[in-house]
């Protein structure tokens, strides 16, 4: 490279550095300073883990709406003393799950990750999913790309403040629902050898996620909660193939639902897509049993540092009517 070329390269790189500094600084200034809805964070329910005491969450559950409807951290707490948080969002893709997990791992030493597999099949074209992937990664790397619009509301004295997370999400990310709207149709899990291919975009981010778990020595469990409208045997087979290939356990609650007393007539809030609180309880207790048999997780029930969980469970019981 000649002299002018070198000069230009240095100039370009230093300008990039200036930009980077500005972007990091503005990210710091504009990022929500609290994880409450008023603080401006997106999906406060999914981000309540920020204000749980440091390293208090052992199990992170990520996925789409199936996960936050059908997994109940407080039932798991009450029965087994495991601490978990559901950081799920509507239509969360695996790429988004990945960036969400990165955030959780910054404040908790997670032992087990439960990935709800329904989001694997969120189909989008290659270009769209690449766009989503870049959006998600830009947003999680530099929050200015996600929260830039907060310039409208942010008060000058907030700009330089360090974040202080105060939200208290009693249900630990679960969406409580007392609605009952049963599914009356026929069996949807008809055995077949066919497979529905996992989209390429999912596979890419899935590989990244699996690798991240291995590197951090975190166990990974694939979970499919009952969902009549979105699940099928073809999808089951595809996930099973992938899980076997990578040596990951796959727990599909759509198969053999009788074993934990699941009833589509009473346990769904919207006719077979999402579970209500009763369905979530049944599913979670079944999962808890499986976890207790297969994973070395600690029971924190006697521990004084975790007494807030008991209070939260009480509040949860008051809210859950079915």
């Amino acid at each position: 490279m000649n002299k002018t070329g070198l000069k230009q390269l240095i100039k370009a790189l230093s300008f990039m550095c200036v930009l980077l500094v500005l972007i990091v600084a503005s990210s710091y200034m504009l990022a929500p300073k609290d994880n409450t809805a008023e603080g401006g964070i997106v999906n406060p329910n999914a981000n309540g883990f920020f204000s749980e005491p440091k390293d208090s969450i052992d199990i992170a559950v990520v996925g789409n709406s199936d996960a936050y409807s059908g997994f109940s951290p407080l039932e798991l707490w009450n029965e087994y003393g495991y601490t978990s948080y559901v950081s799920a969002e509507g239509h969360q893709t695996v790429a988004q799950s990945y960036s969400q997990l990165k955030k959780i791992m910054k404040c908790h030493s997670v032992k087990l990750i439960i990935l709800e597999t329904d989001g694997f099949f969120t189909r989008s074209k290659l270009v769209e999913s690449t766009a989503k992937l870049i959006n998600a990664s830009m947003g999680s790397a530099f929050s200015v790309f996600q929260y830039h619009d907060r310039w409208k509301r942010v008060k000058p004295n907030e700009l330089l403040k360090a974040p202080n997370y105060t939200a208290h999400c009693t249900a630990k990310g679960q969406w409580l629902s007392n609605e009952v709207k049963g599914y009356m149709g026929g069996e949807y899990m008809v055995k077949t050898d066919k497979r529905e291919e996992i989209p390429f975009s999912t596979k890419t981010s899935l590989d990244m996620l699996v690798k991240m778990c291995a590197e951090n020595d975190i166990k990974l469990l694939f979970l499919e909660l009952p969902s009549q409208s979105s699940w099928s045997y073809k999808r089951h087979n595809a996930v099973k193939d992938y899980a076997d290939e990578k040596g990951i356990t796959f727990l599909d609650l759509n198969i053999d639902r009788e074993s934990f007393g699941f009833d589509w007539k009473t346990d769904t809030r919207d006719g077979g897509n999402h579970l209500n609180s009763r369905g979530a309880r049944k599913a979670t207790l079944f999962i808890g049993k499986y976890l207790s048999e297969n994973y070395p997780l600690s029971d924190h029930r006697g521990d004084n540092r975790f007494k807030q969980w008991n209070a939260d469970y009480k509040e949860y019981l008051e809210k859950v009517k079915i």
Binding site: I23, S26, N135, G139, Q146, H148, D149
Partner: peptide, 11 residues
């Protein structure tokens, strides 16, 4: 930075 912060894009 004007584009990044004041652009009408994202959520």
């Amino acid at each position: 930075m004007a584009v990044v912060i004041f652009g009408a894009y994202g959520p």
